[in-house]
């Protein structure tokens, strides 16, 4: 028997995930046009792998396949994996990463809604640890023809010297390490556009636009993007003002790497993130802090993924400590709360 309520809002997981995909389109368009068209190949490859892996796992776990595959959640994961990988990684690396994301990070933990870690970030971190070289070959924006990119993806000879440039973050790190006089000197280099890496500023703008769409459609709330951007700006700004020769500017940090992708699409993953309003602020600010630390002092060029995983661990604690006040109760700790 069916019980009340007998009416439902026309909402579905499919609609939520579909809107997330739609919101990624502006960023992807800018990516394909300004940086590397190879990303489209990777996106397709990742999507196919994800759907196949999802169907396989559902079959193994004896769950209804059709409804779970059509909820589009696997494709969202696939796209996020592809978008944070270099666009010219070999095909098997993309596939392997997606398999890790779907099989290990998602289904071994119990499937949609059960995973404590962000699957795309699990994939990113395991691949950067396992294949650090492949994972840091970013082509300079627009430097490679589509054919060359396709060749690289499909396993052509990887003689990349001279073809790939370092990312802005990489250049910054190596530049500073190798004794360049200051951040500014490094930023004169060819890898950089107006701000952040050349060409990437457009991608970042695309992600920002998509993120605003998600805010407008109430798929995400303002808390996480705002806290992430504010925290990243605040901490990088403080150190930049303190010593601009050693630390990059907030604008640089925001437009580099996947900062915008992270702010609106990765940090905001509902399943593995904090859920209370205050918890969301803490969660996103924590990621920004860890990302900045790793970018500035750590061994990897990009720290957001590690920040996400580390903060994922803290989610139960954050949620528990930030439970909102219940109607009629003066404080959340009134009666029973500790």
């Amino acid at each position: 028997m069916i019980h009340s309520p007998y009416i439902r809002k026309p909402a579905s997981v499919q609609r939520v995930m579909g809107l997330v995909l739609l919101a990624l389109v502006p960023g992807i368009t800018a990516y394909a046009l300004k940086v590397s068209a190879g990303i489209l190949v990777n996106l397709a490859l990742a999507s196919l792998t994800a759907v196949a892996a999802e169907a396989l796992m559902l079959a193994l776990r004896k769950r209804p396949i059709a409804i779970a595959v059509t909820d589009l959640s696997a494709i969202v994961t696939a796209w996020l994996v592809a978008l944070c990988f270099p666009p010219i990684v070999p095909w098997w690396l993309t596939m392997l990463a997606v398999l890790v994301a779907i099989i290990v990070a998602k289904h071994l933990y119990g499937g949609l809604g059960q995973n404590p870690f962000n699957p795309a970030m699990v994939a990113y971190c395991s691949m950067i640890v396992a294949y650090p070289a492949l994972m840091s070959q970013w082509p300079a924006a627009g430097s490679l023809s589509f054919d060359t990119q396709l060749g690289l993806i499909l396993g052509g000879a990887r003689d990349l010297d001279g073809m790939t440039g370092a990312t802005a973050l990489d250049a910054l790190r190596t530049g500073l390490r190798s004794g360049a006089s200051s951040v500014e000197a490094v930023l004169q280099g060819s890898a950089f556009g107006f701000f952040g890496g050349r060409g990437w500023e457009w991608v970042s703008l695309g992600y920002l636009g998509g993120g605003l769409l998600l805010l407008a459609t109430r798929i995400i709330t303002w808390h996480m993007p705002a806290a992430f951007i504010a925290a990243l700006s605040l901490i990088s700004g403080t150190f930049w003002l303190f010593d601009p020769t050693r630390f990059a500017s907030p604008l640089f940090h925001l437009a580099s790497g996947g900062a915008m992708l992270a702010a609106f699409f990765i940090v905001t993953d509902p399943v593995s993130g904090a859920t209370t309003p205050r918890g969301k602020l803490i969660f996103a600010a924590g990621i920004a802090l860890i990302a900045w630390l790793i970018r500035s002092f750590g061994a990897y060029p990009e720290g957001i993924a590690f920040g996400v995983l580390l903060m994922n661990i803290c989610v139960p604690l954050i949620d528990k400590k930030t439970q909102p006040r219940v109607f009629g109760h003066r404080r959340r700790d009134e009666g029973g709360w500790r």
């Binding site: 779970a68 499937g111 809604g113 798929i219 709330t221 993130g273 859920t275």
Partner: peptide, 9 residues
């Protein structure tokens, strides 16, 4: 049909 909770809030 009921689907898993995605903790969307």
């Amino acid at each position: 049909p009921e689907q898993p909770c995605i903790r969307c809030g």
